[in-house]
């Protein structure tokens, strides 16, 4: 019953290591270090990294920047709420608002081009979840997150909210239309 009894040797830290333990600790430690170094290595060699570029902002300031983009690049409106669909030029700064319970505006991006996508919340916390490509990020009020994205798949993407944000959470759906490039 010795795990629930005091060890036979009071000075337990001098007890010799069992061989099966020593071997496993060595293997497990090597694996731990490999997993640790994978993360910085992916920053160097991998293509999917968050830049962690972010700014403090206010709902008013972020709304103003988004409105300016919408005024300049809206190409049509959709749904009975007349949500604008915006087609910003490749390489530009694109703004996306998360609010109860809407992603605003809808976006149209060109495949293979790179955009600086700024996202912030005007009220509570939201979750940016792009489907089916499956990219997820946390969106916070008062903070503007910048994702440099390069859509490289064909087919439209849907933005879902995956941070619980109240009773209308499951109706908060947006869209990123992807157009084929080279035209």
């Amino acid at each position: 019953m010795s795990s629930i009894q005091p060890p036979s040797e009071t000075i337990w830290w001098k007890q010799p290591l069992d061989r099966v333990e020593g071997t496993w600790i060595g293997i497990a430690l090597v694996w731990s270090l490999i997993m640790f170094f994978m993360m910085p290595l992916w920053h160097i060699y991998g293509k999917q990294n968050l830049s962690n570029e972010a700014y403090r902002t206010t709902p008013e300031a972020f709304m103003a920047k988004t409105q300016a983009m919408v005024d300049q690049y809206t190409i049509r409106t959709e749904t009975n709420q007349n949500v604008p669909v915006v087609r910003p030029p490749p390489g530009s700064d694109v703004y996306l608002i998360a609010r109860l319970w809407q992603w605003w505006p809808l976006l149209e991006l060109e495949k293979g081009q790179t955009y600086r996508l700024h996202i912030s919340s005007l009220d509570w916390q939201h979750g940016f979840s792009l489907q089916p490509v499956n990219i997820n990020a946390q969106i916070l009020p008062g903070y503007e997150m910048v994702l440099t994205v390069t859509p490289d798949t064909s087919g439209d993407q849907t933005i879902i909210c995956n941070e619980y944000c109240g009773i209308g959470h499951h109706t908060m759906v947006g869209k990123i239309y992807i157009t084929e490039g080279g035209s």
């Binding site: 019953m1 010795s2 795990s3 060890p7 040797e9 007890q15 010799p16 290591l17 333990e21 600790i25």
Partner: peptide, 13 residues
Amino acid sequence: AIVFGARPLSEKV
């Protein structure tokens, strides 16, 4: 310990 009377392989580890 209760079911098998097991003791740790080594207390240190």
